[in-house]
Amino acid sequence: MRYLIIIVGAVLVNNFVLNRFLGCCPFLGVSKKTETALGMSGAVVFVMTVASAVTWCLDHWLLAPLGLGYIHTLAFILVIASLVQFIDIAMKRFVPPLHAALGIFLPLITTNCAVLGVAELNCKNGTPFIESVLFSFAAALGFGFALVIFSGLREKLAWADPPRCFRGIAVALVTAGLLSLAFMGFNGLVKLPY
């Protein structure tokens, strides 16, 4: 039950994008087509889950024993960056179409604050290993959920005819705002452990 609450909480109630406003860059950048959004979601789920596991280990077994808690941000960035780079190389080799579709946004996962954010949150809350991996997984799912919904909306918006000053990213931001407004209905749906 506790695990279910973690998942519902991270996907719906405290959605990373729509409630915590983390990871807005790929949210706006890779949401023009549903296919790319799905690919990006998959990549983020993978990266975030693996990254949180790695950073948890790093934090608990290396940084904490050495009393180096103050440099964990630095260490996390280093690890996440290399991990993303590794996935980038592997993807180019094994799934080139997806690699081409994600383009610049795959390396951008490096700077996706959601990845660092989830690691930091786990670190701050002192979450146990299983729960932090689950939380990261759910948070990434929530990110992907929001991204796919938003991509559907943006595919529809491609046919819209907004006034000149609102064309492109402006109208996308308005839509994101309204989506965020809609998700506020989930406020307090579950009592969050974190």
């Binding site: 050495l66 630095l74 280093l78 690890v79 290399s82 780079q85 590794f86 190389i89 080139p96």
Partner: peptide, 23 residues
């Protein structure tokens, strides 16, 4: 040392990946 160590490890892994998985 810790940061440098992590960096070196990551660099090694990437170098290997680049060599064997490059297109």
């Amino acid at each position: 040392c810790v940061i440098a160590g992590i960096g070196a490890l990551a660099a090694l892994a990437l170098a290997i990946a680049d060599k064997y998985l490059a297109v």
